[in-house]
Design a protein around this nucleic acid. Structure first.
Lengths: 155, 155
DNA sequence: CCGATATCGTTATGATCATAACAATATCCC
DNA sequence: GGGATATTGTTATGATCATAACGATATCGG
């Protein structure tokens, strides 16, 4: 299987010694997330659920009904973004929405019975998927990774 | 600053003990990437460059002219995705495109002089940005993180 | 030489993602 | 009570991101 390459000699550029893309955490994090995400879609894609959608359902499963805004913060999504996710989940009748009578700004989101059932079906798959993503790490390294990622996102 | 919370008692659900969103690497990676990405946009956003766009320019700076497809692989972007990024960079005259005469399938991408100048201006900012993202980690932890992220994306 | 196979790029579709500007509603504080 | 301030959700805009289907071109194998 031939791979394309350029024959032109790479120009030795002034700052190319100081800077390598591989040294930038953002780039490494993007690649690692791509890998983790594709591992998940590979396994739950048949249910037409994306990683953010599943995270949203899982959070509701853990916590029960939440306002749309709080739900968004708990899954690290902007208001405009969580809104779209909720709309899709609602269209599939995995969640319901309703106004909070005590604070009319709030939209309360909750799982339907179908939503609960789907989450419970997918949780073991998600756990296996995380295990696969971490397959190359031993127990110590896994602990380190969680600790380090936690520090990066802290606050 | 009041934060919204629900008053409804959280239902104790069957699998909630086995599964926590915070234990899923994919979720942690997404949050960490969000942080790194916003650190970057905060600093180079004034130049209207996103993280993927900068990665693309940086790769071209390192390697010189590349086919669009190879460039995409080197910055971890799908063909349909790198295409759009190249179009935007081309519109801003940061890169040029041309057919490879020896293989007419290929589109060769290269930096313009303006592209080179912009990369050289932004490289120090990007390095500082990576440092900020890693600010909470000591030298040992940084090495560990790079090693672990490398393992996750390996292959 | 020529058909099978592989690669490159495009198009279309749908889901994330962030930002800014905005209206509605709550809360704070004098 | 009432205005300043904060929070919630929406809308609009633009950039990523992945996938599948497709035509064009190269390469491989007999």
């Amino acid at each position: 299987m031939p791979r394309t390459s350029t024959k032109a000699a790479a120009p030795v550029r002034r700052l190319a010694q100081d800077y390598r893309l591989e040294d930038q955490v953002g780039f490494l994090l993007r690649r690692a997330y791509q890998r983790a995400s594709s591992n998940l879609v590979e396994r739950i894609g048949a249910h037409d659920l994306t990683a953010p959608q599943f995270a949203t359902l899982a959070r509701l499963y853990e916590r029960g009904a939440l306002s749309q805004n709080l739900l968004g913060r708990l899954v690290a999504m902007e208001p405009a973004n969580i809104r779209d996710v909720v709309l899709r989940l609602k269209k599939r009748r995995l969640v319901t929405t309703g106004r909070d009578p005590t604070d009319r700004r709030l939209i309360l989101i909750d799982l339907t019975a179908a939503g609960v059932a789907l989450v419970e079906q997918l949780i073991p798959i998600e756990i296996a998927c995380t295990a696969k993503t971490l397959a190359r790490l031993d127990a110590t390294q896994k602990r380190q990774l969680y600790d380090l990622l936690g520090r990066l996102a802290e606050d």
